[in-house]
C-alpha cells in the first residue's frame, strides 16, 4: 500500500522546498509519495521540471490559493 509523507515548506524560498523534497525522497520506498506544501510560486513549476529530469513520477500539483500542494511518487 502506498505511503504518503507530507512536508510543510510554506514560507521557505527557492530552492528550499525542492531540497526538502529531495532529502525526503531518499528516505522512502519506491512507489511511496511525498506531498510538499509550498507558498513559493517557482517551486510549483520547478518540481515538475526536476521530476521529469531525474525520472520520478509527478502525481499532481494543486493550486490551493495561497500555496500549492505538490505530490511526487518515488520511481527509482
Amino acid at each position: 500500500m502506498t505511503q504518503r509523507k507530507k512536508i510543510d515548506a510554506r514560507g521557505a524560498f527557492c530552492p528550499g522546498p525542492l531540497m526538502e523534497l529531495i532529502a525526503a525522497l531518499k528516505l522512502i520506498e519506491i512507489g511511496d509519495e511525498i506531498e510538499v506544501l509550498s507558498s513559493d510560486k517557482g517551486t510549483a513549476a520547478d518540481v515538475p521540471e526536476w521530476v521529469a529530469k531525474v525520472g520520478h513520477e509527478m502525481v499532481e500539483v494543486i493550486d490551493l490559493g495561497d500555496h500549492w500542494s505538490i505530490i511526487v511518487r518515488k520511481a527509482k
Binding site: F13, G16, M19, A23, K26
Partner: peptide, 17 residues
C-alpha cells in the same frame, strides 16, 4: 531579512544529495 536558504547550507546540501 526574509530568511532565504543559507548559501553555505545549500552548498552542503548539494554535496550531500
Amino acid at each position: 531579512e526574509k530568511g532565504a536558504p543559507d548559501a553555505l547550507e545549500l552548498f552542503a546540501m548539494g554535496r550531500q544529495l
